[in-house]
Amino acid sequence: MVAAIVATVIIRVVGVIDWASVGAALGHLAWWQPLVLVAVLLVRQFLNALPLALYIPGVGPFRATVNDQLGIMMASVAPPPGDMAIRVALFRAWGVPVPQALAGTTLNMLTFYIVRFGAPVIGFALLLVTGQEPGLRWLDLLSVAIAVGILAALLMVISADRTARAVGDRSGRIVRRFRHSVDPAAWAEACATFRHDASARFRWGFPRSLVATVGMLIADLTLLLLCLRFVGLDTTEISVTEVAIAYFFAYPFTVFFFSGLGIVDALIIAALVEQGGPAVESAAVAGLIVWRVFFIGGPIVLGLISLAFLRTTIRGVRVEAERTG
């Protein structure tokens, strides 16, 4: 279904890409511009990891950033739960209690999903300010509804032990309709345990984490804008607001494989072509290529660098875990 929609968008809106023109647009990049993009990427990754420091006692911003890069890298190259395993191993090496680490990591993930699916709210606000009609973008209210649902469920779980157990039991019963091996009682106990480990830092950390994660989106949007400007797409062709609208409505689709590679790109390019006409297509494609190199490749490289420096630490934790059984 999604593949069919993306194919239709590419064929009907974007059309046939002139790869020679895309190459010419990439030729606009100056030697110093990737350095600027790296700096913005570092800010983005710092803000993306900051909720870990806010949710988990004893984990500062630097450690949170290193842990997050390793987790992202593992999620990109290995199946789940490889990313969680390396995160927990590193937290254990730092002396962080595993239950608190797992609760903080889960809160970090839920905060990110709330912001990810809630991103179209900013898009709708920009449409209102600019006086544009939403059109088919009304469908993005479904994404907003998912964000509201996740937020409501999280607040219910955190509110009281009884409510946490009820949410876990009800969720388990729903999932058991599709997977008969699911035990609702185990889900209820897991929610109660999560509430116990997460509630202490939630009231203080959650609003700050929301701000940090929205800041991450702004940094990522800045990265995209710079990529487009560096390949020659200037403000007379596509304004900052138009890029922002395209970005915020496409962002929920990063939930798909490799951060929505292909889907997100097609939606953003289609929106830019719709606003600026066919003349902006080649530069838009070139800018999205550069953005994807940093968006996907950057965190993987940072993760590999972190792994190189922490390999001995992680190996020592694994050896100790195997020795103690």
Rank of each mutant, 00 (worst) to 15 (best):
F91Q: 08
A93V: 01
W94F: 10
P97I: 00
P97W: 00
V98K: 12
A101D: 00
A101M: 02
L102G: 03
L102Q: 11
A103Q: 00
T105K: 05
T106G: 10
T106P: 05
L107H: 08
M109K: 15
L110P: 04
T111Q: 12
F112M: 15
F112V: 12
G118P: 06
I122L: 14
G123Y: 03
G123T: 01
F124R: 00
A125C: 06
A125Y: 03
A125D: 03
A125F: 10
L126F: 07
L126I: 09
L128V: 15
T130H: 15
L136P: 07
R137M: 13
R137I: 06
D140R: 13
D140S: 14
D140N: 13
L141Y: 06
L142F: 06
S143V: 02
V144G: 02
A145R: 11
A145E: 09
G149R: 10
G149Y: 09
I150C: 12
A152K: 06
A152G: 08
A153I: 07
L154T: 08
L154S: 08
L155Q: 12
M156K: 12
V157I: 13
I158W: 03
I158G: 03
D161V: 12
R162C: 11
A164S: 07
A164E: 00
A164P: 03
A164N: 01
R165S: 07
A166E: 08
A166D: 07
R170S: 09
R170V: 13
R170W: 08
G172Y: 01
G172I: 02
I174Y: 10
V175A: 08
V175G: 11
R176L: 04
R176W: 10
R177K: 10
R179Q: 13
R179D: 12
H180V: 10
S181E: 13
V182F: 05
P184D: 05
W187C: 15
A190E: 02
A190R: 12
A190P: 01
T193W: 13
T193A: 15
R195S: 00
